[in-house]
């Protein structure tokens, strides 16, 4: 994880593009500028970044299911719950599953656990739009870096 760069996913552990599930892992860094403000002397990963982490896990799932032909953009967060604190060094396991495939949108359910502890969960809604040309290369490179196999551009 590089919180300040919004690189929330370290590696993809498994993905099922047919069923619509993904499991990824991330390690919270020991140090980050984010912790200088949240909070001084008591570093905790902000809930908004945990939401982003679930959104990115879901986003890579949706990207992979479309073979990077269309891009999901987060449009809604429902029933988000943050059940425990996340401190530097925490090992996170993030799962996401496709809840509903709509026309021009998709809904996922995602959760974060650390060991046996439930950390966070939410229902996330994405608008599915044509892939912005300027993002194609970047998204493929980032997906490759976390171990998500992508086809040719």
């Amino acid at each position: 994880m590089r919180l300040e760069y919004f690189e929330m996913i370290d590696r993809v552990v498994e993905i099922d593009r047919t069923v619509g599930t993904i499991l990824v892992r991330s390690t919270v860094p020991q140090a980050s500028p984010v912790f200088e403000g949240h909070f001084p002397g008591r570093p905790l990963v902000p809930g908004v970044l945990l939401t982003e982490t679930m959104a990115q896990a879901s986003g890579y799932l949706l990207l992979a299911m479309r073979e990077f032909s269309r891009m999901p953009f987060l449009m809604g967060v429902d029933r988000a719950r943050f059940r425990d604190f996340v401190e530097p060094g925490a090992e996170l396991e993030i799962s996401a599953e496709l809840e509903h495939e709509g026309s021009g949108y998709a809904v996922t359910k995602s959760r974060i656990v650390a060991g046996s502890k439930r950390i966070a969960d939410a229902e996330l809604r994405f608008r599915i739009l044509p892939f912005p040309a300027e993002l194609d290369h970047l998204m493929r490179a980032r997906a490759g870096a976390i171990g998500l196999a992508v086809g040719p551009a």
Binding site: M75, G76, H100, G102, S103, G104, Y105, V107, R125, R127
Partner: peptide
């Protein structure tokens, strides 16, 4: 955007 929310509920 709101119509997508409605579409989800209708679906």
């Amino acid at each position: 955007l709101a119509f997508l929310d409605i579409a989800f509920a209708v679906d």
